[in-house]
Each structure stands twice: as structure tokens, then as C-alpha cells.
Design a protein around this nucleic acid. Sequence first.
DNA 1: CTATCATATGAATACACAAACATATGAATG
DNA 2: CATTCATATGTTTGTGTATTCATATGATAG
Lengths: 124, 124
Amino acid sequence: MNKHDHTDVLINVKRELPGDEVLCDLSDLFKIFGDTTRVKILYSLFESELCVCAIAELLGMNQSAISHQLRILKDENLVANRRSGKTVYYYLADDHVRTIISMGYEHLTEKRETVKKEALQADE
Amino acid sequence: MNKHDHTDVLINVKRELPGDEVLCDLSDLFKIFGDTTRVKILYSLFESELCVCAIAELLGMNQSAISHQLRILKDENLVANRRSGKTVYYYLADDHVRTIISMGYEHLTEKRETVKKEALQADE
DNA sequence: CTATCATATGAATACACAAACATATGAATG
DNA sequence: CATTCATATGTTTGTGTATTCATATGATAG
């Protein structure tokens, strides 16, 4: 073997790496959070449950667009809904949503601080 | 106003909702995790730092594809690298990566258990 | 049971982006 | 300094998907 060899390291890594299906499910989950509209919807529901047209009004978007996204969120068990007459109220189905988003938020703010620091150092 | 009105609720929601830019950055961050290849790379780095071709070998993919993804991960400050001669070793730059992924993983396992329970109930 | 409001769904379009291919940079070795 | 190995980058192509428009379902009131 002339080119450099990684079999030793890879043995350990492979052992700890979850199966393909799990990793796909994981990225599929994060894909849900990887859309501005969906994040906005979820964040809005932090405060209180909302009906579809309220969300549409809030985000300045089509009712249809919101409905489509809510369906995706519901299919992934991130939101649930209850019907009251003609209107349907959506709410967060899971506290993990809050945690996951907060975690991302924290990462962002730390990153921003780092950028600030670097800018200050560059000024000196 | 005949159609139903949400101004009251929306006032509160609007007050707590972060600005557009923050929410975009947030979804952009999650978008990074929303790709199987990138999740696999990140998960691999949980164990130990790895050079590009080791990752390529591990995932059975092009070196080019891996490089492109590593660049994206680096731009988002999720991984960093060090050079040792010809080879470049990548490693996790931030412990948030572990937390975020673990959080997603946890959500998934709970969801799986719910599905199992439902299946059991359906059997009865 | 018809009209209207609230939501859902189907189809079409437009855009983003991952992977592959080709090629460039960059470091070490003889 | 030319060659080879390791990685990076530019470009293209195909696929996935968010949004919109049009329309369907579902519920209530008169």
C-alpha cells in the first residue's frame, strides 16, 4: 500500500457510526428546520397556538403556502392541530422543537461574538 | 371586520419574534445539517479528526464531493482543519455540533418509540 | 341545501444545490 | 525542478422542493 492508509482509524469510526437509515432520518429532520418559512412558523408557535390565516398574515404569505408547510411540520410530528369550528389551530407538538431551535440560536450568537472579536482585533 | 380577526394575538407574537435576518441565519444553519453527506461527515468526526480521503473512503464517495461539503461546513464554523504535510485533517470546531445532532437524534428515537406504541395498540 | 369562510390539496413553475467531472493549487520527495 | 500525492475549486447537470394558482373539502349560519 503506497498511498496513505486509514484502515486503522476507520475501524473505530465505522464502529461508532450509526446506520445509513438513522443518519438519513436525522438529516431529514434537520431539513425541516432548514427553511425560513418553517422556522418562522415554529418560532411563532413558541408564544401561542395560531390558526392558519393568522400565520399567513403574520408572515405576509399565501394561505396555501402556509398550509403546505404546516402539513410538512405535522407529518414530522413537530406541530399538531385542533379544530374549532371552521378554523384550525396549530401548536408545537414537542418540546424538542424549542430545544433544537434554541441550540441553533445559541450557536449563532456565539458565532456573531467571535466575528465581532475578530473585527475588533483587525482594528488594532 | 367580518372575517375573523387576529390582531390581538399577533401583537404579542410579533413582539417576541426575532428579526428576519436572525431567522434566516437560523434556517441556514439547520440547512447545513439537512444533508446526509454532511451529517455523516460530522458524525464521523465525533470519534476523531480525519483527513479528506479517509472521509471519502468511509462514505464511499468522491474526494471532490467531500471537499465541497467540508468547505461548506468550514464556512459555517462547524469544522476546522490543520495541515500536516500534504494531508489536511478536519475536526469538529464546536461542541454545539454534538449537542445539536444529539438533540435531533433524541427526537428521532422518541418518535420511533411512539410509532412502536401505536403499532402495538393497533395489534390489540 | 346553499352560500360563505377556513383550510387543504393538486399541479405547474422556478430556483437552489449536491454530485460528478475536469482541472488547479500546494506540499514533499528524489 | 519535475513528479506525485492530497486537497481545492470551477463548471455543469440533474433532482428536489418552495411557492403560486386553481380548485376541492369541510364546517357553520341563514
